[in-house]
């Protein structure tokens, strides 16, 4: 499977049936996703046909953050993403945590008006900003190893 991920053509030349490998990986992955779906449904207590969309998106982001193709990376990415989301929901807004007297009352009012008092509503936006920064500065994720530039 790892050989096929590395280089499809080379794996095929080595006598690996890549179609079977890909199908197998797809089947195992789908099965694991179904287990996650079961756990998710039990925890949420309700189901609907579109419930899978957001988790898949988040799984994808977590995989990018952690590093594609790395098992430990997937775990780390999942934890980082989960912690980020909870922190963004739980932390108060900037206007509320500024100590009184640090800025003038006028500025304080301006901050409270223009910066949201809680970041909850903007949670997804921050998650994706983090993702874009990640892609720019460490495109292979926290644990992924850097790719060689391929010359053809």
């Amino acid at each position: 499977m790892r050989a096929a991920a590395e280089d499809l053509t080379a794996a095929q030349l080595m006598g690996i049936n890549i179609n079977r490998i890909i199908a197998l990986a797809f089947a195992i992955g789908s099965g694991l996703a179904a287990i996650a779906g079961l756990l998710f449904a039990v925890q949420a207590g309700q189901i609907n046909p579109y419930m899978g969309f957001t988790p898949v998106l988040k799984a994808f982001i977590a995989a990018v953050i952690g590093g594609f193709g790395s098992i430990a990376g997937a775990v780390v990415g999942g934890f980082v993403l989960g912690a980020l989301e909870v922190l963004l929901t739980a932390l108060p807004g900037i206007g509320d945590i500024l100590p009184p007297g640090m800025v003038s009352p006028g500025a304080q009012a301006l901050i409270q008006q223009w910066l949201p008092s809680s970041l909850t509503g903007y949670r997804d936006a921050f998650v994706f900003v983090a993702l874009i920064l990640m892609l720019l500065f460490r495109p292979n994720g926290i644990l992924g190893r850097p790719d060689r530039e391929e010359m053809r």
């Binding site: 998106l57 994808f60 982001i61 990018v64 949201p116 509503g121 903007y122 949670r123 997804d124 936006a125 994706f128 900003v129 993702l131 874009i132 892609l135 495109p139």
Partner: peptide, 19 residues
């Protein structure tokens, strides 16, 4: 990477419109 990042842009726009 660019597909995921632009998808992120879509989500950010949506969040801003909502808020």
């Amino acid at each position: 990477f660019v597909a995921v990042a632009t998808l992120g842009f879509l989500v950010i726009v949506r969040v801003i419109l909502f808020n």
